[in-house]
Design a protein around this nucleic acid. Sequence first.
DNA 1: TCATTTCTGTGTTGATCGATACATAAATGC
DNA 2: GCATTTATGTATCGATCAACACAGAAATGA
Lengths: 208, 208
Amino acid sequence: MSARGRPRSFDRTEALEKAMEVFWQQGFEGSSMSDLTTAMGINSPSLYAAFGSKEALYLEAVRHFSETAAAGTFRALMEAPTLREGLAAMLHASISCSTQEGRPQGCMIALGATHCAPENERVRLELKEMRRILRDTLRLKFETAVADGLLPPDLDPGSLATYFATLVHGISIQARDGATREELKAVVVHALASFDRATRVNDPAGSA
Amino acid sequence: MSARGRPRSFDRTEALEKAMEVFWQQGFEGSSMSDLTTAMGINSPSLYAAFGSKEALYLEAVRHFSETAAAGTFRALMEAPTLREGLAAMLHASISCSTQEGRPQGCMIALGATHCAPENERVRLELKEMRRILRDTLRLKFETAVADGLLPPDLDPGSLATYFATLVHGISIQARDGATREELKAVVVHALASFDRATRVNDPAGSA
DNA sequence: TCATTTCTGTGTTGATCGATACATAAATGC
DNA sequence: GCATTTATGTATCGATCAACACAGAAATGA
């Protein structure tokens, strides 16, 4: 590859990981270049040469987060044998990711750039887009299940998708504020109860 | 009161309201003194004389928010004739507050300072405390209902409190990302289904 | 009238922000 | 060896940050 020139003296991925943890803990606007270079163990010019800018580093850190720490959440939803199990696994994975020991609490994507200065609007839109993907994926799952006859035909896929996306995002705020893994697992039980109620056909006693 | 001296040339509450909207939209770290003085229509020294510091202004703005825009959410929970109606009204009020036209989307308290720079930790703790109050109020409501025999004795108040707090906070993230009032109202239906399931005694068919 | 008190606008403070200029170091190709 | 290429460390850039000094303005009380 790039054999020419003086070789980089640090591991790019390791540095990215360190930057990710700083941004995960303090957010984009709460992390200064000084915070980042200190954590990454490099000087400012090396950071700019390797990542471009603070914003580019943040976006790359978020992408790295989604491919590592948050990957389990999506995989859980996609790979479970049934949709119900997938939803439960997704919530459990989200809780696990949000309550890791020795790491910032809450999901970097769920909490990232929910509000920011006007000049950082680009960052907010990028994070908003990543959060949108969760809801769209959920809706597609519900739509497919309805089309396959696995769920009642009158079920509203968008409604359930919004509901589960709301739970995943709410879990991160709870975790950030100190909620434990055990406290949050109770949320899954109630979420599944809603799912069971919404996917049950012709049960007049269900609402009593 | 303070009759002596040159009278203040601006309305303190109006200025606080303007500051609240800036912080609500951009967050604490995303709002600069320049943003604030411009929106408030005053100069920096007047701001410091009237409010003390940027941090003090933010905390006062959040308190003002909780007493005005967010007041309906708590009142709905406390004043409804039944707990079930109170929960539904609380969620609806939270959705209304989070999707007002011409105002920032999402709740200022739910989204406020979920992460920040270490030097602003005091701000984060204050917001975390305000969010904690919601969960504690909910738990107390459930505990009282159990003690009064209105809910099954084996019901876990903390579990349901975490669940509903998660929903309220998740709703704000959805709203901030552009979810409409109608989309979010679907969440209430599913939440009440969970409540009904959790508060039903001896229903072996309920889990089928 | 005039001292006292409080607020306002101008201008500026030191600190920190994100981002680079520049000279040097360390690799390769020939 | 020597030109070329790329990365590094030092030192610093202009801009902006939150906060304030100061003098003048506008009210009061005596």
